[in-house]
Design a protein around this nucleic acid. Structure first.
Lengths: 352, 352
DNA sequence: CTGTTAGCGCATTCAT
DNA sequence: ATGAATGCGCTAACAG
């Protein structure tokens, strides 16, 4: 027994034929059983099921795919799984797709123009039948001209366009709400982290525009030198931008960050430099990252209905797989400002 | 033009035959060009390449897979993508696999016994050729008896076993180091968060054992009532456990958490209850979660060589796909204690 | 109700 | 150097 193989026997995979032989029926009867066709006698059905068990049969996806011309695979193209927002999106989409019999293949683009362009051009492997796409670099114009051979549904914020189903969020509106909240708690000197002059896509511009609009309607001036670039929405970029703000601490009492990760990084820097949040500076972000719920202080954020986003994305890409002749649709998913400690009025949280 | 279809024309995918016809050659010549066989004249090669471009040919993975009996797909079976550690693992593995021509399909088990059992039984779709598996619930005994029909490589901590390649980390050793560090900075009254009495798998027991061993060799007593259960390694569980500790604040000056997320959750609770970290209580975790680098205070942690883990995992599963007759191997990947603010000696960080 | 047949797209013989 | 033929595993159509 000691010389027994340490691994499962690598005997060839059983096929329908093997099952058929074992059960004493034909291959098509096996297929009928597999697909719950009603015209099979209970007796044979049982024999086939038994045979399947005995020979350890598992259908070959490749054979099925070749025959049916379907793979039931969706791709999710996102910048990076290490971003909590995209990780959570992948998780929820996975659930939704699975419940409809589809498998999700995650394709990390790194947010690069090159990889995103490949997605738009339909450069896909593995017989992917549809793509849920979160571009952050690809210019709108290129998206319009995309020549993919499978349905694509767009997630995120990209202005209006004609070509694709689009699950959008209203960042302009949420930015106004967030700004109004800060104003109502007494903030007047605003900074913004997340300006992306080199990007044609993504939510940054809309959130900045919302901030501007709300400030304007409240008659508050925005110091343009306090609009800070963040080429990516990472903690590191937030940290970097905040260093700039530390040197001008007296000029800022509120920071609007285009994403929670930026805010997390910024908070870290501000606190290390002796600034108190929210006493000296209030701060907020977008995405409701879990770590913002457990940070100290906890982070005010704009939360999107991720479940609705995922549901709509899966539903629309699947229905387009079945019939791609209907006109593109635009969906706008709701959001909600979740107020936490990082934007409390000054007096509430005394210095510890 | 206005009535032009809004979507790419859904004409049937081009096949090798289409290319062949377009190029005026036979299908096998096309195949030869595709595979860089040298016996094709430059002229025909060029014609074929042109034809491929013209008809927009993309090889059918299904056909290729059926013919070759290979899919070049690996599965990564992890509990949950929303855990930063697993998300990062997925990211790195994805890179490594891609560079070797494999695609990774992420399979979220939820950490449930049922789903993990399915993985071990080889209940896999899509012609997956190998599995990188991070079980957290499945008992060792069941793993031993797994009857998967594809190679499986195990990640994480599962005691010793005979059946699989295993990329391990030495949690016992790292827990001793972490504990020694805490002792060296003057801590004496320890608590542990992450005891999992109902789990047979996962790193919890080893980290607790390392804590015990180091305390014993330093002659320090561990109050058993300060060994707290965390059924899952989440921020919420950490928060919950820490509430218990708040009521016994005077009895604790160091908390060893079996994972960073537990520590993050615990820190949040402790700080909200007026306890200062590290002045009142030092705390540390495992995994080097990014958020621990940006938390306030930043979190001391045990960092594993994730790159090495991923590299070994991919390499061993692929080599086993090619030849599954060699004896199972055990690899132990290095770790490093990253000391940050959360375990500073008491005096260093004065109350702000 | 069940078995026979055919072909999905591809890569590999084996002829030529 | 190129083409024709074959079969991978599966299922839908059809025949019985």
């Amino acid at each position: 027994m000691a010389s027994e193989a340490h691994h499962s026997v690598a005997r060839k995979r059983a096929t329908v034929k093997d099952v058929a032989r074992q059960a004493g029926v034909s291959a098509s009867t096996v297929s009928n059983v597999l697909h719950d066709h009603p015209w099979v006698t209970a007796e044979k059905r049982k024999a086939v099921e038994e045979a399947i068990r005995v020979v350890g049969y598992r259908p070959s996806i490749a054979g099925r795919q070749l025959r049916n011309g379907r793979s039931d695979i969706l791709a999710l193209a996102i910048p990076d799984l290490r971003s909590p927002y995209y990780a959570e999106l992948a998780h929820v989409l996975n659930e939704k797709a699975l419940s409809r019999g589809f498998t999700v293949l995650v394709d990390e683009t790194g947010g690069t123009l090159e990889r995103e362009r490949e997605i738009a051009q339909g450069y896909l492997n593995h017989g992917i039948e549809g793509v849920i796409f979160c571009p952050v670099s690809l210019p709108l114009a290129e998206l319009e001209n995309a020549e993919a051979n499978v349905p694509i549904v767009l997630l995120g914020e990209h202005g209006s366009h004609q070509a694709f189903d689009h699950i959008a969020i209203d960042s302009f509106a949420s930015a106004r709400e967030a700004t109004a909240h800060l104003i109502s708690t007494g903030r007047r000197r605003f900074a913004f982290i997340g300006y992306q002059p080199d990007r044609d896509t993504g939510p940054g511009p809309f959130r900045l525009a919302g901030l501007r609009a709300e400030l304007a309607s409240a008659g508050i001036q925005l110091d343009e030198s306090l609009v800070l670039v963040a080429s990516e929405f990472t903690r590191e970029e937030g940290e970097h931008s905040a260093k700039e703000l530390v040197t001008r601490a007296g000029q800022v009492d509120a920071i609007v960050c285009a994403a929670d990760l930026l805010a997390i990084g910024a908070m870290s820097t501000l606190q290390r430099n002796g600034l108190s949040i929210p006493n000296d500076i209030a701060i907020l972000g977008w995405d409701d990252s879990p770590e913002g719920r457990f940070s100290w202080p906890s982070l005010t954020t704009v939360k999107h209905d991720l479940d609705a986003i995922a549901e709509l994305a899966v539903r629309s890409v699947i229905s387009r797989i079945e019939d791609d002749t209907t006109a593109p649709q635009e969906y706008v998913v709701s959001h909600r400002l979740v107020v936490r400690e990082s934007t409390s009025p000054r007096r509430e949280l005394a210095a510890s």
